[in-house]
Design a protein around this nucleic acid. Sequence first.
DNA 1: GCCGTTTTCGGCCCGACTGTTTTCAGTCG
Length: 563
Amino acid sequence: MSNAEITERLEEAIELMELLDVNSFKINAYRKLIQSIEADSRQIQSLSSEEISASFSKGMSLVLQSLVEQGTFAELSEMEKEIPFGVRTMLRINGIGPKKIRTLWKDAGIESLPKLKEACIASQVSQLKGFGEKIQQGILDGIAFLETVHGRLLMHKADKLADKLESDWEKSGISGGIRTGDFAMHSETFSGLDFLFPLEKRNQMKDWFGENPSFKLIEENSGPFHLRFWNETEEFNVCLHFAGKEDFEKTRFMLETEKGHWVKASQAGIPLYSEWKKTGNNADLYSNLGWPAVPAELRNGTFEWSPEFPEKVKNLINYKDLKGCLHNHSTWSDGKNSIRQMADWCINQGWDYFGIADHSQTARYANGLNEDRVFSQWAEIDALNTEFGQNFRILKGIESDILGDGSLDYTDDILSQFDYVVASVHSIMKMDIRTATSRIIKAVENPFTSILGHCSGRILLKRSGYPLDYEKVIDACTANHVAIELNAHPSRLDMDWQNLARAIDKGAIIAINPDAHEDAGMAYMQHGVWMARKAGAPKELVLNAFNRQGLIQFLQLKNKSIA
DNA sequence: GCCGTTTTCGGCCCGACTGTTTTCAGTCG
């Protein structure tokens, strides 16, 4: 059992303990265990029992040993027997937590999402103690949202699942498949895992899945050139596509192109479809049409058939253009790595600077920094910068909470001393479009705000975020020299690329930020670059592609003493 | 579950907001 599998089992255990109302400090102990496993460079399964006992507390050592040997531990198996799977799925509903779910389960006998939905529609839930009309409606809204995201995957999760499948296939001697569909198009979220195989592999693949009990064949979505499977335990689709040698590239192009790309081409009088049928491979397709090649992530009908496209595609941001990133967390707040470790990761990328923007004082839950701790952090950064010399620079930022009224949570005096300020919303997320927009605009108009962080507050597949009047927010950002963050974390990707395209048309400056809580989290910059490309971001508008001097000049526009 | 104590149990932790209530439990970031 790998460390990742161990922490996954521990997370399951935590979920179940919350439902059973186990002492929260005990649950916390399990959370801390997960953190220490993640921070440990060793594989637990390769340690002797003595080494495990020496590294973890007594109780947790027993849990880990049992996990390594049996894949579970006594308390977890007990809880799994006690709690129906359907009850656990209720935890995904926003706005209700373990206590309320426990009431629904124990007092009302509701054990699945469909049953819960029925009970809400019949107004039975609002009659329960501690529930009312609003909570009942919130549950219905939550279930409706879950229905729209059912079976969808975040891009980094899809990658992990695909890695696992491919390694299992390799062990079974299966080769020749390639990732396609959402993988190639770098879709915001995935409808499933798409693979394309040579046609002669069809029977072999069908047999492999037939022997794997966690996958169920979906007959109605399968045919001679497709096999679709549903993984019931982890709730995701796998779609295998098959094509003969002649059609392989042609099929691949079809799978990696959204409808909008075809429609826009046809509207512009470009014979894409007939050329695709004739050419059969995408290497020659665009040159035959007299267009520059369109990479899969851009084939979605947004801007690729415009007269400006040939010029625009040449200037699009690429990963290699990046020179640093500005929204990251360290052990000073809720990150896993020290400032130095984070900076070292950036140096290894060949980057020019690293910006730290830990949580501000309102974010107590995330160990946000009060004024005194801000000063201590600056002292640490000054010392590191002296050591690094001119070759590399750590910038002093902060992710300052946008309070309910749109103000930031430090005095102007403190705000002015940061090199830059990322202003973000973390609380009071239930707002109508007017209130939310004016709150955000007030934060953008703050003379010390440099970057507007994850502007919608959405968490992909989990919550939709508050509504915003994007025209007004974008205009406020350009008027106030505030860069718009493209939060590159795969569960945020916020501002979304469609609205970002509008911002780019207005000349807004984009800051691609990983919101990293550990050094490896900065690798999500790649996901941000894909989204920026979808939005048509040229490198001239991406703050992270500015050289250090250019970056500092931009930040100096906002009343900063940075030099 | 862990920790540290004039140790064998009590404290550990985080405040704002919401929707229930009619003083507070539950949820969230």
